[in-house]
Design a binder for these strands. Structure first.
Length: 265
DNA sequence: GGGTGATGCTGAG
DNA sequence: TCAGCCTCACCCC
């Protein structure tokens, strides 16, 4: 679920439904009961997506920090909504809408210092910053780790997940084993702009569809069946959409990565 | 219907 | 280093 595009979609939806309103906040599960009672009745001033983090800034300098982790999920409903399950960590509610949060890795009330610490540990977010920051170029130039590892480091670039790292490197024809510091200026620039473009498209589609539809004989991205939506991710042993070489996979940064040894060499 | 791994990451040990 | 979050999609029976 949660690469940067998912987080941005949630932030946009919650901005529409909740921003500027006093919210009823509760925790049916109980694990966020103390935090919920401190937010209950306060006006939500701003919802912010930063990489894979959600920040809900309430009046009184109180911020709710949510990170979905692997299994976390936000369900948002116009009222009437079904009752939240007893496992629901957090409920945000107005007279018109409700959002239910289950299974998050993080759901905490934090202060300004903590907000700055979280944001300070994140690299630039391609969905937030249009021009490629110098910090990104510098980080890659000084990093000898494989680019496949570096792209998952949220301190280098925020919001890219395991699907996007495989797909962006495929689209740019870059072998994931290449040390980041060996990339040319053009390759660094292309990685940023492709990551930004694909993340933006992910926000639009609500799904990660990187394959150009005409390349595989479809008219629109939405028409593509699941197995044709990506070039490399989870396609181990299957033929590359472009050159028919078998897609390979290996572990990198503790997780599987997929690439085409012919197109990315 | 049951088992399992994953679009992540933290914090206990 | 690894359990944990406790959901969902996919596979196998």
């Amino acid at each position: 679920m949660p690469a940067g595009h998912t987080i941005r979609r949630i932030a946009d939806r919650h901005t529409d439904l909740f921003e500027g309103q006093a919210l009823r906040v509760s925790s049916p599960q109980g694990r966020f009961a103390a935090g919920a009672s401190r937010l209950d009745g306060r006006v939500l001033q701003q919802v912010e997506a930063r990489g894979k983090h959600l920040l809900y800034h309430f009046e009184g300098r109180r911020t709710l920090h949510v990170h979905l982790g692997l299994v976390g999920r936000f369900q948002t409903h116009r009222l009437p909504a079904p009752a939240p399950s007893p496992a629901t960590r957090l409920v945000l509610r107005t007279d018109d809408a409700a959002a239910y949060l289950t299974g998050p890795m993080k759901c905490d009330l934090i202060d300004r210092t903590m907000v700055e610490r979280i944001v300070g540990h994140l690299g630039p977010d391609p969905l937030k910053v249009s021009r490629r920051p110098k910090a990104f170029d510098d980080a890659l130039a000084g990093d000898h780790r494989p680019i496949g590892t570096v792209l998952l480091d949220q301190g280098v670039v925020a919001g890219i997940g395991n699907v996007y790292r495989s797909e962006v490197l495929f689209l740019e024809g870059i072998d994931p084993h290449t040390p980041a510091s060996d990339l040319t200026a053009d390759q660094v620039s292309a990685i940023w702009s492709t990551a930004r473009e694909e993340l933006r498209r992910g926000v639009e589609d609500g799904a990660i569809i990187t394959v150009g539809p005409r390349e595989v004989g479809a008219a629109t991205r939405r028409e593509l069946p699941a197995e044709l939506r990506r070039y490399a991710y989870k396609r181990s042993g299957m033929p590359c959409h472009r050159c028919h070489t078998q897609i390979r996979s290996t572990e990198m940064a503790g997780r599987q990565i997929w690439w085409c040894p012919e197109c990315q060499s």
